[in-house]
Nucleic acid binder design. Structure first.
Lengths: 130, 130
DNA sequence: CTGAATCCGCGGGGATACTG
DNA sequence: CAGTATCCCCGCGGATTCAG
C-alpha cells in the first residue's frame, strides 16, 4: 500500500506513523458489512431499522458494531432525535461519500465481470486440469 | 447493491440469480487480505513467498486460502514451473486488474482523508459529548 | 519452495434479554 | 425504536507437520 522501505531517518517517523494508520483504517473498513452499509446509505439518510432491513443478512449486532466503527472514523454521521420512541438517523459524511465512490466502482466491476467470473469459477470447480 | 425489488415474473429469475451471485462475489472478495494481495501483486508477477513477505502480517494459511479464492474467481492466474524446488508465480488477470483499480482508488482515498479520519477518531475516542 | 492437512484456541458473531 | 450487555458456540485463522 504505497509502502516504501524506510530508513532510520527521523523524518521517516511520521511517514511510518501515517502508513500504519492507513493500514489500520484499511483493515477496518475493507470488510463486506461496512461496504454494504455504505452502499445502502448512498445519497439518502436512513434509520437504524431501515438499514437493518436493507442490508440483507446483517445481524443487529454487526450493524451497530459497523456503524460505530464508521462513525468513529467520521464516515457516517449519527443524529439522534430525542423523541419517544427514539429516532436515529445515519448519513454519509464527505469522506464517507468518497469511500462510497469506491464501493460503487466495485459494484460496477462485479456486474461487469459477472460472466467471466462465473465461468472461471465453474472451470475451477470442475478441476482445472481434466 | 443495485438490488431492485423483484416481482414473481419469470424473467426476474435470472436477475435474482445474477444478483445473488454478485453478492456472493462481493462478500468473498471484499475483505482486507484479498485487497492487500491484489495491491501487492499490482503490475508485476510474484511468487508465493514474495507475496508472503510483501503482505505484511498475513499467515501462510490465509495467503493460500485467499489466493485459491482469487484464482477460483479468475482474478489471479497461477503458473507452476515444474522445477525443483517448485516455483509458482501469480499474476493478475484482466478482471483482476479491474478490481485493482478499485483497490487503488481506496488506497488513494485512505491517504486523502487520513487527516480527517484521524481527528474524527480522536474526537470520538475522547467521548463525543463532553 | 509451495501447499495440503491437522490440531486447537480464541474471538467473531448470532440469539436473547434488558435499559432508555 | 435504538442500543448495550450477556451468553455461547461455531469457525476463522495461527502454528505446526507432512508431502511433492
Amino acid at each position: 500500500m504505497v509502502t516504501k522501505q524506510f530508513t532510520g531517518s527521523p523524518e521517516d517517523a511520521d511517514l511510518r506513523r501515517a502508513d500504519s494508520l492507513a493500514r489500520e483504517i484499511f483493515s477496518d473498513v475493507a470488510n463486506k458489512w461496512a461496504f454494504l452499509i455504505i452502499e445502502a446509505l448512498g445519497e439518502r439518510t436512513a434509520r437504524f431499522s431501515e438499514l437493518r432491513d436493507e442490508v440483507e443478512g446483517i445481524s443487529h449486532k454487526m450493524l451497530t458494531q459497523n456503524l460505530r466503527m464508521l462513525e468513529r472514523y467520521g464516515l457516517v454521521e449519527r443524529t439522534v432525535y430525542p423523541t419517544v420512541p427514539p429516532r436515529v438517523e445515519y448519513t454519509l459524511t464527505e469522506p464517507g461519500h468518497g469511500l462510497r465512490a469506491t464501493v460503487d466502482t466495485m459494484c460496477g466491476w462485479t456486474h461487469q465481470y459477472l460472466g467471466d467470473i462465473e465461468s472461471a469459477r465453474r472451470r475451477f470447480d470442475a478441476g482445472r486440469d481434466e
